[in-house]
Every structure is written in C-alpha cells, then in structure tokens.
C-alpha cells in the first residue's frame, strides 16, 4: 500500500468512528437524560466538524506547500454529507415524527432550520459530483465553480447552529469563528476567486 492510499484509508476509517460509537451508545441506551436532543445535537455537530475539516485542506496545503492533504478532502466532504443526512433524518424523526406534510411549514417558520436545510440541500449536488468521473464530465472549471457552494453551506451551517441556541453560547460561537477564519483565509488569498491560477484548477478550495 502506498503512503497516499494508506493516509486516505486512515481518514476513511476514522470518519466512521463517531457514527460507530454513537450507534453503540444508542444500542446500550447511553444517550443521556434527553436522548432526542442528544441525537439531534451530536449528528449536527459532526456534520459541521467534518465540513470545517474539509475546509482546512486548502489552507494547510498553502501553508505547508504540500499537496498531500488534498487526498483527504473528498473523504472529509462525503463524511460531512453523511452526518448531515443523519442530522436531517433525526430532525424528521425526532422533531417532526415523520409528518412530512408539516415539514415545509415548520422549516419556513423556524428560520434557523431554514438555514440548516439550505446548507444540507447545497451539499447534495456536491456529494453527487464528488467522483473523478464527474470532474471530467463537468470539466474542471465548472466543477470547481459548483463546488464553491461549500462556502455558502458552511456559513449557513454554523449560523444555523448559533441561532438554534436560546442565548449566546460559547460552542456555537467557536464554530462561527472557525468558519469565519477558514472562509476569510480564502478571501484574503484569493482562493476560489476568478483570478485563481490555472495550475490548481480542479482542486477547489
């Protein structure tokens, strides 16, 4: 196994650790005093963490000058999508009792959910076009432009989390700050902008 393949395998395996532990805890009925709230919060937190980790790849590449980290981006992004799916499923089940007809009205009335849903919907085309084949079919430039939607998804996701809290709380604010730094990095370095160099076309920040 090459170093590159091994490194990617490491990320693939580790991304599954939280869902494995969460499933085990659920099976043992160890989800705290309020299992519904815990499942909703934990799945959402994991989605945001993997989304922000995937946004760390380009800054790390720029700072270290090594392309090594790009190996992890797709895996991290797909895990973000996976945990976001889990989070939406928990919302539909635990918050809405699978009353799907009521969901559009609920999403509209509760604006923090509207933002969260926006983030989730934006991740769908990104996950669907995550294969190398899709990069070819779309062409690197168009693919890259499409995948800039991840910036909007990340911003919507962390604001969704911050607005959900009843009062200003520390942890959601840390996520907002982290997303702000990661997106601000791109604004300052001009990554993802039209003036981006050709050399790394196809490797969206």
């Amino acid at each position: 196994m090459t170093t590159a393949r091994y490194a990617r395998l490491l990320v693939q395996i580790n991304g599954a650790v939280p869902v494995a532990l969460l499933t085990f805890a659920a099976w043992r009925d160890r989800l705290g005093y309020n299992p519904s709230a815990y499942l909703l919060r934990t799945s959402g937190l994991l989605a945001l963490i993997f989304l922000l980790l995937s946004l760390c790849v380009t800054p790390l590449r720029r700072i270290t000058g090594r392309n090594f980290f790009s190996l992890f981006r797709r895996t991290l992004g797909l895990y973000a999508f996976f945990y976001a799916c889990l989070h939406v499923l928990m919302y539909l089940w635990l918050d809405q009792g699978f009353d799907l007809l009521n969901v559009p009205a609920d999403v509209w009335r509760r604006k923090f959910i509207l933002l969260g849903m926006l983030a989730f919907l934006l991740l769908i085309p990104l996950a669907a076009t995550s294969t190398a084949g899709m990069v070819k079919r779309l062409g690197a430039v168009r693919w890259k432009r499409l995948h800039q939607l991840v910036y909007v998804a990340a911003a919507a996701g962390v604001i969704h989390y911050a607005l959900r809290a009843k009062v200003l709380e520390t942890q959601p604010m840390l996520f907002v700050v982290a997303a702000g730094v990661l997106l601000g990095f791109r604004a300052v370095w001009g990554i993802g902008g039209a003036s981006h160099s050709r050399k790394s076309a196809g490797r969206v920040g």
Binding site: Y6, N14, P18, D29, R30, L31, Y33, P35, T42
Partner: peptide, 28 residues
C-alpha cells in the same frame, strides 16, 4: 500501518467522547 490505524481510531474515539459526552443516562 495496522498499529497506526489502531492508534488513530483510539485518538478519534477519545476526541469524540470528550466532545459528545452524553453524561449519565438514567434507567428508563
């Protein structure tokens, strides 16, 4: 390589357990 996988899984599990600690669970 196998040891590396084991160590990284333990580390990830540790970070997750700290971040997503559900606290005690009562009987139901």
């Amino acid at each position: 390589q196998t040891l590396g996988i084991g160590a990284s899984v333990a580390a990830t599990g540790g970070v997750y357990a700290w971040l997503a600690d559900p606290g005690p669970s009562p009987y139901r």
